[in-house]
Design a protein around this nucleic acid. Structure first.
Length: 258
DNA sequence: TAGCCGTGGTT
DNA sequence: TAACCAAGGCT
């Protein structure tokens, strides 16, 4: 849930989920569409599908327990480099290298002397991060949470609070006079009129309905037929939407969402 | 690896 | 106020 989503927005939904589905087995027993519905407006709803799929995998292959090693975690759907390392470290105490957007920014500044990290993680960046992690597993875990928190609370993206920073005196960016970012242009996401916007609107209609929705209700969301069909098709392909007979649609009820 | 995938608070 | 950006993953 926290992937690309601020803690403050995740917290209430997370509590609802744990009250409803206390264990992976509980979640796996419900339809994937219920996960998508309970995801609400957190965004990137494919994460809900993957979380459900991960629950199914844990239920089927490990008696409903969460794997305790980074390697096993990586095999779960929706669990990538960051999440596997974070869970392995924070939940199970494994000594690994946790690199999220906060860590990348802190190291870019403190070590490399640049305002922002590159648009996408580089090999060199991960090597540097790994080299900074303490050898002791307990200290390594403390290190990771500390760097993440420093990035989130002090070394923030927009207006860093350098006057409050505990490592300002050894920060390469600070020592260089806080030069502005010179690297390759950063993405910048368009929104108005995009497929993402329409997919979100389509899914919002389906989430709000307890009964199958007729195609006509979905068509009302856009006059662009080409885009409309493309988005609906992609939602079906993603397993987020299930087409029924008589031109009706619903959130996936079947057990095997991709 | 670059592009795609949502949403809403912050600056 | 329009951008920016957030505990990324997948193809």
């Amino acid at each position: 849930m926290l992937q690309q989503t601020p803690v403050a927005r995740v917290a209430p939904v997370w509590h609802e989920w744990l009250a409803r589905w206390p264990t992976p087995t509980d979640l796996a027993a419900d339809a994937p569409g219920e996960a998508v519905r309970a995801w609400g407006r957190l965004g990137y709803p494919r994460r809900a599908l993957r979380l459900h799929a991960a629950a199914v995998a844990m239920t089927e292959h490990q008696a409903g327990t969460v794997p305790s090693t980074e390697t096993e975690l990586l095999a779960l759907p929706g669990v990538g480099t960051y999440t596997a390392a974070a869970v392995a470290t924070f939940a199970f105490g494994e000594r690994t290298t946790v690199v999220d957007t906060n860590v990348r920014r802190v190291l870019a500044r403190v070590i490399s002397g640049e305002e922002y990290a590159a648009p996408s993680p580089t090999r060199a960046e991960l090597t540097v991060a790994a080299g900074l992690v303490p050898l002791d597993a307990v200290e390594a875990r403390t290190w990771s949470v500390a760097v993440m928190e420093l990035g989130a609370l002090v070394c923030s993206a927009r207006s860093p609070r350098c006057s409050e920073c505990p490592v300002a005196d050894l920060c390469a960016w600070q020592l260089a006079g806080r030069p502005s970012y010179q690297g390759p242009a950063r993405k910048g996401q368009a929104w108005e009129g995009t497929d993402r916007q329409l997919r979100g609107a389509l899914l919002a209609v389906l989430r709000a309905s307890d009964v199958p929705v007729p195609r006509s209700s979905l068509e009302a969301l856009s006059d662009n037929e080409i885009q409309r069909e493309r988005c609906l098709d992609s939602l079906v392909a993603d397993g987020l939407v299930e087409p029924l007979s008589r031109d009706r649609y619903q959130l996936p009820a079947s057990r095997e969402a991709s």
